[in-house]
Nucleic acid binder design. Structure first.
Lengths: 200, 200
DNA sequence: ATTTGTGAACAGTTTCACAGCG
DNA sequence: CGCTGTGAAACTGTTCACAAAT
């Protein structure tokens, strides 16, 4: 199969989500355009990259299309382990979130540099002091990290995560993280997002 | 001034942040490459879009460069008002966050469909039941919304926000929002971000 | 000498238009 | 006959390479 270009990947991730929350059996590229704002042509091109053939004249068969995206993007993989680093208000909120239930992602550990906090907080998975970062990540084979530490700790922690072999960081801090290319970063801070909207 | 293309805008937003947290006086495009992972050529091209001329032989003068970006992206504007819609754990955490301090963005209202919650929670700005959405947004001239409602309410709320004239939504839910093009959406949900990382 | 700023070449995306399929 | 799937065209963004600037 051909490699799927970056912009297409991002759209396909959203498309898969859209299909999941859609009661119907089939859907046409024009309907998808109405729902997502992406042109029907771009949608068809994206789908053609999956080399499935799940639609003609009546639109795409949703079940097949969804399966094809999941397969192409590895969304189906065995549980992929994540950890939360930084257990302030935001970290705690994410810790308790049910968003990842019924997704392939599973949070298996939390870290905070404040030992008190890791002892006082309760969660279904263990919480550790940040000094344990490397050993836990390596023994648990954790792939992704959710970064919710304070500004001052962001860059240092990111670097440590990268050198522990973390594949990707979801960066909730407003710091620009400098990490080796092998570690992908997804910036999702409130401030960055507002600035991006504002710059439109 | 020429229009600044989308990818450049995103990089410039991050570059501005980088410059802010950088003690030095000048910086070269190669140094920026090391810090951000973007090639020096792309950095220079981005900066050339700003039509400033703030560097040669010794790199860019950080103060001037920062000012130019701020100006080009409207980051300097008068306070831009935001609201939080959905005061669950995540909404509360953002409510209490100090991230927007010393930014042009200011949260001026919170909403929740549960009236109890808007009465029990305390914050420096007023909290309202969601029924007040339209009137508050219009009288306060709120530009951006931070969406942290439960899944089921996401699409309906987004539509309402759009029809109230909201310019942009920071979408912390994992729903794909269908809104008119005049309303920009920035997707920052944990699940979407992890999927994007995983699809790399 | 070093680094920007930029036109020109290149690469990657999106749009277009239509043949082919159900 | 409507809709997909896809080459070819158009466009947008990136890299290259070097002249200009200090």
């Amino acid at each position: 199969m051909k490699a799927i270009p970056g912009p297409s990947k991002r759209r396909l991730v959203l498309l898969e989500r859209l299909l999941s929350g859609c009661g119907k059996k089939t859907i046409t590229s024009v309907e998808i355009e109405a729902l997502t704002g992406c042109s029907s042509a771009v949608i068809r091109k994206d789908i053609s990259l999956l080399d499935v053939c799940c639609g003609a004249s009546n639109g795409y068969k949703i079940a097949e299309l969804k399966a094809a995206i999941v397969k192409a993007l590895n969304l189906t993989q065995e549980r992929q382990k994540c950890c939360i680093v930084g257990l302030g208000k935001l970290g705690q909120a994410l810790l308790e979130s049910t968003e990842l239930e019924s997704s392939p992602f599973q949070i298996v550990a939390g870290f905070d540099s404040n030992v008190n906090r890791t002892e006082v907080l309760r969660s279904v998975f263990p919480l550790h002091p940040t000094t344990m970062l490397e050993s836990v990540i390596k023994t648990e084979h954790i792939k992704y990290a959710i970064l919710t530490v304070p500004q001052e700790e962001a860059q240092g922690t990111a670097q440590k995560l990268s050198s522990c072999g973390i594949k990707g960081i979801v960066n909730f801090t407003s710091c620009v993280l400098t990490v080796p290319k092998k570690t992908a970063v997804e910036n999702v801070s409130l401030l960055t997002s507002l600035e991006t909207l504002s710059a439109n």
